[in-house]
Amino acid sequence: MVMRDLNIGTKVGLALLNDRWYALVLSNLGTEAVDFMVLRRRVRGLSTLKLLTVLAKMQQLGLISEEAHYQYRLTATGAELGQSLAELEAWGDRMIVGMR
């Protein structure tokens, strides 16, 4: 069977990870709740409104949850995606080293 296009799941995953703000938020959250202002300081160059928009979308996708007033953590699904992002980063690092 010839594959002419990516499946919808691949497209959704790539679109999310291709947007650096989603990937950075994902990388800066864990399973422990993080206060919004702490996250805001960790993810530099992002406006408060854009961060709130990214967090809302990630909540809608089930990747994060709001634990208390403006405290966020990864859900099991978000942690799984975070692990995939870490593996992709490790692969990229190996490729960069191999190209030297």
Rank of each mutant, 00 (worst) to 15 (best):
I8A: 15
T31N: 08
L17V: 11
A68W: 00
E67L: 07
V12C: 08
Q59G: 13
V2C: 10
W21R: 12
A90I: 05
M37C: 04
R73D: 01
Y72N: 01
L85T: 07
R41A: 11
D5E: 11
D35F: 02
L88M: 14
L61T: 00
D93S: 11
A56C: 05
A15N: 13
G62T: 00
N28E: 11
E89Q: 15
R94L: 09
Y22L: 07
N28K: 10
L49C: 03
G92Y: 12
Y72P: 01
A33P: 10
W91I: 12
E89S: 14
V25C: 00
N18H: 14
T75A: 05
A90N: 11
Y72M: 04
M3V: 15
E66Y: 05
L61R: 04
E67R: 13
N28W: 05
T75F: 00
A86N: 10
V97D: 09
Q83T: 11
M1Y: 12
G45L: 00
D93R: 15
A33T: 02
A76K: 09
N18C: 13
V38C: 01
V43E: 06
L88G: 10
W21A: 12
M1E: 13
D35P: 04
G98H: 06
V12G: 08
V38Y: 06
L6M: 07
S84L: 15
E89N: 14
S47H: 04
L52W: 06
M95I: 12
L81M: 11
T77R: 15
L17W: 08
L63I: 03
V2Q: 15
E32D: 10
A68D: 07
A68C: 05
L29S: 00
L14A: 12
L55Y: 03
G98F: 02
T31A: 07
I96P: 02
Q60M: 08
V54H: 03
L51P: 02
A23G: 08
I96A: 12
G78Q: 01
E87L: 15
K50I: 10
G30F: 05
E87V: 09
A56K: 14
